[in-house]
């Protein structure tokens, strides 16, 4: 891939030693565009280092925070696992020439760091819930099972304990496919209209409604397991 020198290309400052470890320090204020990320993943080895450092930093902090908050209720120290899980998640984000990382679209309102944290939470939930297999399938796994489409019951009890909700959220993240989790985030976290989300994901309105119903049933089933 031929390219002339770019004015916005990142440059590495001189390596310096910090606490006995060599580190590379990057200039402040560097922003990655979607196009630039695709270029880096397509064949820019020098810039790949900077991208990986940025992504790994977001992953590590998200993993540490998630594990600390989870471990607090269990009286455990998760420090040993931060690096372990972070590396595993980074490798999965970069697999297949960065297939998952290429999904980031700043038009959907998330910075690169925010998108990476979102995917990290889902990946970490899958690891902690012991789910195996390919979490990056295009189609939902468990929630694609043919379940009766239940109408919401007016007496449905919503988990009121924040800790119960946290446990449920982790289990839901683990059970949703990558695509399903991104759908959940767009509809319920970012609170975008369904018709807008359908267009973003290239789905019909009916397909998103059907997914929504399955997700609701899955959440209720998981909630019943937490507090029958």
């Amino acid at each position: 891939m031929a390219a002339s020198a770019r004015a916005d290309e990142p440059c590495l400052l001189n390596t310096r030693t910090v606490d006995g470890s060599a580190a590379r320090i990057y200039p402040l204020g560097l922003d990655f565009t979607r196009t630039r990320i695709h270029e880096i993943l397509d064949g820019d080895r020098a810039a790949l280092t900077e991208l990986v450092c940025e992504v790994l930093a977001s992953i590590k902090v998200e993993v540490a925070v998630s594990l600390f908050r989870r471990a607090r209720s269990q009286g455990r120290d998760p420090r040993q696992e931060v690096n372990d899980f972070s590396h595993e998640i980074l490798i999965s984000l970069l697999a297949d020439r960065g297939r998952v990382l290429r999904l980031w679209d700043p038009e959907r309102g998330h910075s690169l760091a925010g998108f990476v944290r979102m995917i990290t939470r889902q990946r970490l939930s899958r690891i902690l819930q012991g789910h195996r297999g390919n979490p990056w399938g295009d189609e939902p796994t468990d929630d694609a099972a043919l379940e009766p489409l239940l109408e919401p019951d007016a007496n449905d009890r919503i988990l009121e304990s924040r800790e119960e909700l946290r446990i449920l959220l982790e289990r839901l993240r683990a059970r949703l496919s990558e695509r399903g989790y991104l759908l959940f985030c767009r509809i319920y976290v970012d609170q975008r209209p369904i018709i807008e989300v359908a267009a973003e994901f290239g789905m019909t309105r009916q397909a998103v409604d059907a997914w929504n119903t399955r997700a609701r049933n899955l959440a209720r089933r998981l909630a019943a397991e937490i507090n029958p």
């Binding site: 319920y188 976290v189 119903t213 997700a215 609701r216 959440a219 209720r220």
Partner: peptide, 15 residues
């Protein structure tokens, strides 16, 4: 179903 699900809404708020 156009009604936002309250349980999923609560999970979205937590997220």
């Amino acid at each position: 179903n156009d009604r936002p699900d309250p349980l999923l809404q609560a999970l979205g708020e937590l997220e």
